[in-house]
Amino acid sequence: MSEHALELSQISKEFGGRTVVDRVNLVVPKNQVVALVGESGSGKTTTGLMALRLIEPSAGRILLGGHDITSLRQRDLKPFRRQMQVVFQDSYASLDPMMTLGEIIAEPLAIHAIGTASERRDRARDWLQRVGLDGSYATRYPHELSGGQRQRVSVARALILGASVLVADEPTSALDVSVKAQIVNLLQGLQADMGLSMLFISHDLSVVRSLADQVVVMLRGRVVERGPTDRIFANAHHPYTRALLDAVPVIDPTARRRRTFLTAEEINANTPRFRPEDIEPQPLVDTADPQLVALAGSHFVEAIVTGGR
């Protein structure tokens, strides 16, 4: 069962009686980038934090490399923490301003008591270079860097322990346009080199299109559609996914058009309907209604199945 790097099964989260994440199933296969997209309030960040066990789920299971880590105590979790790391949006808040970049990058090694002080220093310098910064940056402080450079440091710190799973929560959202591509390329390069598996949480569909193998769309705590990136972008079935894709500005002033917007009620009313013969035989989730149904090509969508033979 260890074919998946990360697997969330029927995971839910309630805050004060409100269901923020509702029975989400999510799989990050080895060596793939899975993008979790949605708008504010969709529960995508909560889902990501639950995968990291930085928020405790109310129900469901978390499997890391096939191991159930859902109810491990913090002490028993420590070896798994080495395998799964995180990069956040706000690189300024997540880097200790009193530490040099060398210290910041080497800190995970120190926490896990790996190597001598000088070995750790050398590895930190190696990692600075791997993320495209000069070794001389080791003695500088976070405030001396630009946003893109700080995000490089965050990536180095996350990967120095040799993590196999990276959760990236909006890592490019706070960056300048001209720097965004650098960080996307950096993540892509490291992913290929290290065989990383990545859960990429983002509202930026353009970045998702260039980076992800699969897309999972969340709406109000539920997964409404998921599938291979190209299929989602070319052939989305759920009205919300379509609305999301339709809302992305088009980089061509000659292709302007008026859009029509669906209200939340209209999106609910337009849940796709399929006849049984149009879908793959096994419904993925059979407890919920409407439910995720399987279409051809590992494409799943929340839909109602009607009118059997």
């Binding site: 346009v177 591509a181 892509q188 353009s206 260039s210 193998d213 980089i251």
Partner: peptide
Amino acid sequence: SIPGQQPGKQ
């Protein structure tokens, strides 16, 4: 440098 202009991971 704008991402997502063409289909496909790149």
